[in-house]
């Protein structure tokens, strides 16, 4: 589903590569934690997958798309296959919960009949049934993140990228979000989650890819956050 082949990314402002010959292969339906200290290359990794940036060397494939060589006009097609969740939720403050989720479908041209049908379904999936008319600021952090997840998942992406989705949440709420991610993963969606949260990684026991100074230093299935840490 996701394949990186000896991917190197050099930024002009830095002498050390942000990613250094990184090769990773993620199968369809896998759940993978991407861990590593700040500056280890996690963000670059995710940006390259989304084609926010192109690698200096190497190939990246997401499903059948050659991400690095994708012409600009086909980039939307790639992004429609990837759902994204962030630490800061990135909801539109002037739209309701339902409006925020619907927006993701409207801007890719889905007909309003589809929108009306699909939005309540996905809100129910994330446990926000009955809250479609609330504004984001009326919700708790955990609920806001659920809205963001509903928005990321509403178009049924092949891959869900979560960039520290629990970074702003307390441990209990984080657990709920993880349960939701598992649930989404069980539908067959590949989940790639960048995190610093030891306890979550340790309790989930999923595949862990650890980056350090732009290199993959560990790639283990059913792993914990750090050995001896």
């Amino acid at each position: 589903m996701i394949r990186l082949e000896r991917v190197t990314k050099l930024y002009k402002t830095s002498t050390r590569p942000a990613l250094d010959r990184v090769s990773v292969n993620v199968e369809r339906g896998e759940f993978v934690f991407l861990i590593g200290p700040s500056g280890s290359g996690k963000s670059t990794f995710l940006r390259l997958l989304l084609r926010e940036d192109v690698p200096t060397k190497g190939n990246i494939f997401v499903s059948d798309l050659n991400v690095a060589k994708l012409p600009r006009r086909r980039v939307p097609r790639l992004r429609q296959r990837i759902g994204c969740v962030f630490q800061d939720f990135r909801l539109l403050p002037n739209k309701t919960v339902g409006g925020n989720v619907a927006f993701a479908l409207e801007v890719i041209g889905k007909p309003s009949s589809t929108v009306r049908k699909v939005v309540p379904e996905v809100l129910e999936l994330v446990g926000l049934e009955g809250k479609a008319d609330r504004m984001p600021h009326e919700l708790s952090g955990g609920e806001q993140q659920r809205v963001a997840m509903a928005r990321a998942f509403v178009n049924r992406p092949l891959v869900l990228i979560a960039d520290e989705p629990t970074g702003n949440l307390d441990p209990d709420t984080s657990q709920d979000i993880m349960l939701l991610l598992e649930r989404i993963n069980r539908t067959g969606t590949t989940v790639l989650m960048a995190t610093h949260d030891h306890s979550i990684v340790d309790s989930m026991r999923r595949r862990v890819v650890e980056l350090h100074m732009g290199q993959v230093v560990r790639d283990e299935s059913r792993a914990v956050y750090g050995v001896g840490r």
Binding site: R73, P76, R79, Q80, C84, F103, A104, V107, I108, N155
Partner: peptide
């Protein structure tokens, strides 16, 4: 958000 969810140019 539009860019993120794959809205066309």
């Amino acid at each position: 958000v539009m860019r993120l969810v794959g809205a066309t140019r």
